[in-house]
């Protein structure tokens, strides 16, 4: 199936590093997507908070743009775009709803609602089309000896009947990828707990306490870093980590990566594609930890090899 690529607005602003690393990782894995011409905003939370038909129409304009690429489906890295596009298609299966959406557009979408493009997350495509084994095979610099908390947020697999991906209570897609990269995944209980979403602008007390709880729990389970697949979650956990620290009166200093950045690191992709410098919480201590663990392993292996050689030599000497 030919798939189009929908980057989402934040890819051009606050989540440039996600956009760039996603493209790099997909290229490295041989995943190619058709670019959508002149895509527009999906409407995000504000649109469906105000009106479902308006939200549907903002998504549906993109369905028409996607059709121009000749693709049957579309992938997006952003869970919020994913949810909006998926939900719009889901609701447009109802003819009355589709008619109201079409009435807001310059020209209506395709007559057959089933022919509207289905949306997938990049995460789902990587997991289902590439798989952990192929990812493991591509790793040149494993993330050895580090513990990762995988944080999925609330939108990736909910509502389950629409999203049709992963376990809504205990998703494991990123766990499998992180394990394939050589990292240890902690049994993180707040995988799908909400981070405060778009409330950060108007109510930092809400995002601060919710994100603070997530970060504190990740710390208590011994995580060295958190990974996420969502620009909004990332903003709340990384860029707003200071606010969360003030709210909780705790220091976290917990680096928060996009999962694609860690994949890129393990694949040895160039720094300029991963854009680790865009992260608010300094990732350097984490990277140094990986390097120290790697060195320790190599040293130990070398020591073991030397000892084995000496033992063999001394046995040879004793025999002769």
């Amino acid at each position: 199936m030919k798939l189009a690529y929908y980057p989402g607005c934040s890819g051009h602003g606050t989540s440039k590093e996600y956009e760039s690393s996603t493209r790099a990782v997909c290229r490295a894995l041989g995943l190619e997507f058709a670019e959508i011409e002149d895509w527009s905003c999906c409407g995000s939370t504000p649109a469906h908070a105000m009106d479902t038909v308006l939200s549907g129409a903002l998504a549906a304009r993109n369905f028409k743009q996607i059709a121009l690429t000749g693709a049957e489906g579309v992938v997006t890295p952003c869970p919020s775009c994913l949810a909006n596009l998926k939900l719009a298609r889901h609701r447009m299966q109802d003819a009355a709803f589709k008619a109201r959406v079409d009435a807001l557009l310059d020209s209506p979408t395709v007559e057959n609602a089933e022919a509207l493009p289905e949306t997938y997350s990049v995460l789902q495509i990587i997991l289902e089309q590439i798989g952990p084994e192929a990812i493991r095979a591509r790793v040149t610099r494993p993330l050895e000896g580090v513990k990762i908390a995988t944080y999925y947020g609330c939108l990736m697999s909910r509502p389950a009947d629409v999203m049709q991906f992963d376990d809504p209570e205990n998703p494991t897609a990123m766990d499998k990828i992180m394990e394939a990269l050589g990292a240890e995944v902690v049994d993180f209980p707040l995988k799908t707990e909400c981070c405060g979403a778009a409330m950060g602008v108007a109510r930092q007390d809400v995002t601060g306490s919710l994100s603070g709880r997530i970060l504190a729990t990740a710390r208590s389970f011994g995580a060295d870093a958190v990974v996420t697949a969502c620009p909004l979650c990332h903003m709340n956990l990384d860029l707003r980590q200071g606010q969360a620290e003030r709210q909780m009166r705790l220091k976290f200093r917990l680096p928060v990566f996009y999962y694609t950045q860690l994949m890129g690191l393990a694949f040895g992709l160039p720094d300029e594609t991963l854009k680790l410098d865009k992260l608010a919480v300094d990732p350097a201590p984490f990277l140094q930890l990986v390097a120290r663990r790697r060195k320790a392993r190599i040293d130990a292996a070398a020591e073991a090899a030397r000892a084995a050689m000496e033992k063999a030599e001394s046995e040879e000497g004793a025999a002769s």
Binding site: T45, C154, L155, R158, P159, T192, C194
Partner: peptide, 11 residues
Amino acid sequence: WLCLSCSTCTA
């Protein structure tokens, strides 16, 4: 207005 639309209630 404070609802975060996270759908935990639905799930």
